[in-house]
Amino acid sequence: MKPIDYLNLHKLQIEIGKIGEAYVYELECKKLKGTPYINKVDDGIARNPANGYDILSFTRDGKPLHIEVKATSGSEDVFYLSKNEYQTAEKMKEQGLDYVVYFVKKVLSDNPDLIRIKDVTANKGYLFEEVGWKVTKN
């Protein structure tokens, strides 16, 4: 068996994420074509993970839309939210803001699948499972 090259795997995962973000950015610009909001779509937010979402977009009538993009090259129905992303979704919900996960499956294909998930933290169609632990020396 060949050992897993975790560094290259991580680089590939980052690249898939960037492709997903670019795909969603393009879709949002197409959606907003002909509105004054098309030039306000901001994908630069993704450069700072502390923001808790990747793209600031808008509805066609100008309501801010905070988008967290999750992408996979496969067709599985699994993605991961960071603690910060989860907390950001909860905080925005409390403030009456729209936080939506755009889950892009088969992102490397000619016809990716896009699933828009509103209110992800309370959406009954998804299960949450804690999968990570922070370990600190005493």
Rank of each mutant, 00 (worst) to 15 (best):
T35L: 06
L32P: 11
A46W: 02
I38D: 08
K11N: 14
V41G: 07
T35K: 11
I38G: 03
D43N: 13
I19P: 00
E26N: 15
Y37V: 10
D43E: 12
I14W: 02
I14A: 04
K11T: 10
K11M: 11
A22N: 12
E26M: 07
Y25C: 00
K30Q: 10
L27Q: 15
K30G: 01
L12I: 05
G44K: 15
L32C: 12
E15S: 14
Y23L: 08
Y37E: 14
K11P: 03
C29Q: 15
L27F: 06
V41D: 03
N48I: 07
Y25M: 07
I38S: 08
K40F: 06
Y37G: 14
D42Y: 03
E26Q: 11
Y23V: 00
K18M: 04
G20T: 03
N39Q: 13
K31T: 00
D42H: 06
Q13S: 14
R47P: 00
V24D: 06
E15M: 11
I19G: 01
E15P: 01
P36C: 08
A46R: 13
K11Y: 07
Y37D: 11
E28F: 09
L12P: 00
K11G: 01
K18C: 07
I14C: 00
C29A: 07
V24A: 05
Q13W: 06
I14T: 04
E21G: 09
T35F: 03
L12A: 09
I14N: 01
Y25Q: 03
V24I: 15
I14Y: 03
Q13R: 14
E21D: 08
G17T: 13
G44S: 06
N48A: 04
H10P: 00
D43C: 09
G34W: 02
L12E: 13
I14K: 12
T35Q: 09
K33Y: 02
C29T: 05
K18L: 09
E21Y: 05
E21V: 09
N48P: 01
K18V: 02
N39V: 08
V41I: 08
V24W: 01
I38M: 11
Y37K: 15
Q13T: 09
I38T: 05
L27N: 13
V24P: 04
E15K: 13
E28V: 00
K11A: 15
I19S: 03
G34N: 14
E28M: 14
H10M: 11
I19T: 11
G44E: 10
E26T: 12
N48E: 10
T35W: 06
A22D: 09
N48Y: 10
T35P: 09
K11D: 14
N39W: 04
Y37I: 10
L12S: 04
E28C: 02
E21F: 13
I45N: 10
L12Q: 12
G44F: 02
Y37H: 13
N39C: 05
K31D: 02
N48S: 12
K31Q: 06
T35E: 12
A22M: 08
Y23D: 03
L32A: 09
H10Q: 14
R47K: 15
K31M: 07
D43P: 12
Y37Q: 13
K30R: 14
G34Q: 05
R47H: 15
K40T: 01
A22T: 02
E15N: 09
I38C: 10
K33T: 06
K18F: 04
G34H: 08
P36G: 06
G34R: 10
K30S: 07
